[in-house]
C-alpha cells in the first residue's frame, strides 16, 4: 500500500516539472523567426505529412500485417468527407455543448474537491491517515469500471456521466496538490511566523502560492484525463455528445466517423489543457521571471 503511494508521487514529480519546461519560451527572443527554426518547423510538418501518406496507403490497400490489419480502418480520404459531414450536421452543436458541459462540470468538481482536500491532507498527518487509504484503493480503478456503479448511484444519467469525468480528473488534482503542499520549504514557514504571520496568513501567503505550480500541473493533467474519460462516460448517453457520437459510430459501423470523433476529442482535450497552462502561467509570474534569469 505504502509502496504504491511512493510510486505515484514519483510519477507526479516527473509530470510536475515537464509542462513548465515544455511551455517555456526560448531564452533569447522567443518570437523571432530564424532559418534554423524554419528548418525545424518544416521537418515537423513533413513528419505529419508522411504519417498521413503512410496511413492512406495502409488503409486504401487494405494491408494486413498479421498482428494488425488495416482492412477495416478508414483512410484519410474517407475521414475528411466524414469530418465535413459532421460539420454540416445540425447535431454538431448539441454534441459539442453536451460534451463540454459534462467534461467541465466533472473537471470543476474535481478541481474544487481535489484542491481543498489536497491542501488539508498535505498539512495534516491525521487527516491524511483518515482519508488517504480509501482514496488510494479507489485511485487505480479506471473510468469504465465505474459505469455500473455510476448508473446505480445516480438517478440522472447526466450526473453519472459527470461523475465519471470527475473521477478521471480528481486524482491528478488531489495528488499534485498534496505533493505541492508537502514540498513547501519549512524555512519559509518559519520566516513568515517570525515576521508576525498567524496560521491563516501562513496558509494564504506561503503554502498556497508555494503549492500553486504543482496544483496547476495537476489541473492540466486532470483536464486531460477528464477528456480521456469522455467516451467511457458517454457510453451511457442516449443521444448527444462527442464521445457518444464516437461510440455510436462504432455500433452503426460508420467507421470514418469514429476517427472524426476521436479527432474532436483530441483537439478539445488539447485546447483545454493549453488553456489551463496559460491560466497556470498567469498565476505564477515568478516562475517565468526565473526562467528568463537562468
Amino acid at each position: 500500500m505504502s509502496n504504491q503511494v511512493i510510486v505515484s508521487r514519483s510519477e507526479i514529480d516527473t509530470g510536475a516539472s515537464s509542462p513548465h519546461h515544455a511551455a517555456a519560451p526560448e531564452p533569447q527572443s522567443p518570437r523571432r523567426f530564424t532559418p534554423r527554426k524554419g528548418a525545424h518547423l518544416a521537418l515537423q510538418l513533413l513528419s505529419v505529412a508522411a504519417f498521413i501518406v503512410l496511413w492512406q496507403w495502409l488503409s486504401s490497400r487494405h494491408i494486413s500485417l498479421g498482428l494488425i490489419t488495416f482492412e477495416n480502418i478508414p483512410a484519410p480520404s474517407d475521414v475528411v468527407p466524414a469530418f465535413f459531414g459532421l460539420l454540416e450536421s445540425p447535431k454538431l452543436v448539441a454534441h459539442i455543448s453536451n460534451s463540454l458541459l459534462r467534461v467541465f462540470s466533472g473537471f470543476v468538481g474535481a478541481a474544487a474537491l481535489g484542491i481543498a482536500l489536497g491542501l488539508i491532507v498535505g498539512r495534516s498527518r491525521w487527516v491524511a491517515d483518515i482519508l488517504m487509504p480509501p482514496l488510494e484503493v479507489l485511485r487505480p480503478i479506471p473510468g469504465v469500471a465505474w459505469i455500473p456503479v455510476a448508473i446505480l448511484a445516480f438517478p440522472s444519467s447526466e450526473l453519472s456521466m459527470i461523475f465519471i469525468t470527475f473521477m478521471g480528473a480528481l486524482f491528478p488534482v488531489l495528488l499534485n496538490t498534496i505533493h505541492g503542499v508537502e514540498s513547501v520549504d519549512p524555512r519559509l514557514i518559519a520566516t513568515a511566523r517570525s515576521l508576525g504571520a498567524k496560521p491563516v496568513s501562513i496558509f494564504i501567503e506561503v503554502i498556497l502560492p508555494s503549492a500553486t505550480p504543482s496544483i496547476t500541473t495537476g489541473l492540466a493533467i486532470g483536464m486531460g484525463t477528464a477528456w480521456f474519460c469522455l467516451v467511457t462516460a458517454e457510453m451511457i448517453s442516449g443521444e448527444f455528445g462527442i464521445g457518444y457520437f464516437t461510440w455510436e459510430s462504432y455500433s452503426l459501423q460508420n467507421y470514418a466517423d469514429i476517427l472524426v470523433g476521436m479527432g474532436f476529442i483530441g483537439a478539445f482535450g488539447m485546447l483545454s489543457s493549453v488553456a489551463i497552462k496559460h491560466v497556470g502561467k498567469a498565476l505564477t509570474p515568478w516562475l517565468a521571471a526565473q526562467e528568463k534569469q537562468h
Partner: peptide, 29 residues
C-alpha cells in the same frame, strides 16, 4: 516575534513576491 528580526546565511525570501512585497510582508501581517 517580529521584534527580533532574524537573517540567515541563505535567504528565505518568498519567491512569488516581488521585492517590494517581500519587504512589506511584516506590515501586511
Amino acid at each position: 516575534h517580529p521584534d527580533r528580526g532574524l537573517v540567515f546565511q541563505h535567504h528565505t525570501l518568498f519567491p512569488w513576491k516581488k521585492i517590494i512585497d517581500n519587504v512589506a510582508f511584516g506590515l501586511k501581517m
